[in-house]
Every structure is written in structure tokens, then in C-alpha cells.
Design a protein around this nucleic acid. Sequence first.
DNA 1: CAAGAACTTGGCCATATCGCCAAATAGTTA
DNA 2: TAACTATTTGGCGATATGGCCAAGTTCTTG
Lengths: 104, 104
Amino acid sequence: MAYDQKYFTDRARIIKALAHPVRLFFVEELAREERCVCELTAMVGLDISTVSKHLSVLKSAGILIDDKRGNQVFYQLVTPCILNFFGCIEAVINSETAATNYAC
Amino acid sequence: MAYDQKYFTDRARIIKALAHPVRLFFVEELAREERCVCELTAMVGLDISTVSKHLSVLKSAGILIDDKRGNQVFYQLVTPCILNFFGCIEAVINSETAATNYAC
DNA sequence: CAAGAACTTGGCCATATCGCCAAATAGTTA
DNA sequence: TAACTATTTGGCGATATGGCCAAGTTCTTG
């Protein structure tokens, strides 16, 4: 297979959006139910502007959508298939101590 | 759910390792068959030292293993479940133009 | 052993990311 | 309209990332 720069850059952009502990938490949390920015802010204890920027990264990657209701903005997960990936991550983490060749 | 910093940082570390176009390409390529550093270097057209560092990121995340044979080092994918994730990424990319709420 | 090939490591520079604060915007309520 | 709440945006500084080159290591071969 040849290295198609644009192809892999497009895909890496989406993975990059997930590659932060806070954003990963938001994805897991929003898989359960939608939340407004202030709820998510209270959960992680960061400045609300920081939280807003993290959410915007996930939104522009196409992972979340937002819905403004009154003066609150609710975010929701639109790509639940991402959750399937998390099981694989667990396997990688567990394999770090194991001696097997294939983690999953 | 509470935000467990260490839990999500550990998991983000692995996703971060995948969050680069060249490393993503290596994962897909090594899913087909193992390759030595010089073969991978020829495919992406970067300096061999840069390639070596990318491979080391994937290795220390537990995604690849290496095997030195003679004066060559062969890398191999140990977490093929990561490939399942790629289908989801495609769905996210395709949904960016679509009007549906759930991408997958 | 010397020369060369295959990798890795260290160092440097340019750019990107992440946090905060301050300011702007939008909606609600008195 | 004024005050207040919720959120976003701009800007700044600290740190991380990604590329190259140069130097070091390991293995092979003459």
C-alpha cells in the first residue's frame, strides 16, 4: 500500500480529537446522556473556556453535535461506534503487563 | 461518572500514539505484514530517524513489537483490534457531509 | 580490524496544544 | 433596559510534538 498523505491526515485528525484525557471522558460521559457545558465543566474542574474549546474540537471532528436550548448548550455523541474502540484500548493496556504476542 | 484523571490519561496516551498520519499508515501497513524500518522509511519518504521515532512511539504504547534480525529491525502489529476502529472513522468522515444525527 | 548498512538517540528549531484570564456574545429575568 | 447566567473567542505563556542533522550503536562483510 502506498502512503496517501491526505487520506491518513484526514483520519488522524479525527483520532487526534479523541487523544486527550478530558475529551475522552466527555465522549464516555456523553455516550450515557447529553450534557450542557456547565455540567461537564463541573465534572472536570477546568475553566469553562477550556471545556468549551475541548468540546469544539470534538464537534468539528464530527464526533459530537451541539444543541442550544435557552442559554445552555447541550452536547451529544453522534458516533457511538467509537465506544467499540475503548475495549481494544483496554486490551492494549492489559497486555502491557502480559507476555502474549497479540493483545487482541 | 466521575472524571478519573489517571484512568483517562492512560487511555489517551494510547490513542495519542495513533493520532498521526504516518503512524496510522504504519499500523495499517503492519496489519498486512511485518516490515523493517528501512522498508517503512522508503514508503513515507521521511528521514529514517523520524521514522524510527514514530515506531518507538507506537511500540512504547504497546501497539507494535519489534524483532531484531541481523542488522534490521522488523516491526509487527500486536493489536489488530485497532483496525475495527478504522471503520468507525470512515463513518465519521462520511457523516460530515450527511445530515443524519447518528454517524454510526 | 576496517568499512559499511541499519537503527537509535540527542539536539535543535518551528509549530501545535493546553491551560488560564479577559472580553465578547446570546439568552433570561427583573 | 440593566443585570445576570451560559457559552464562545482571542490572546498569552508554558510545554509537547515533529521534522532534520549529526553522532553513537550494532551487526555484517571484506
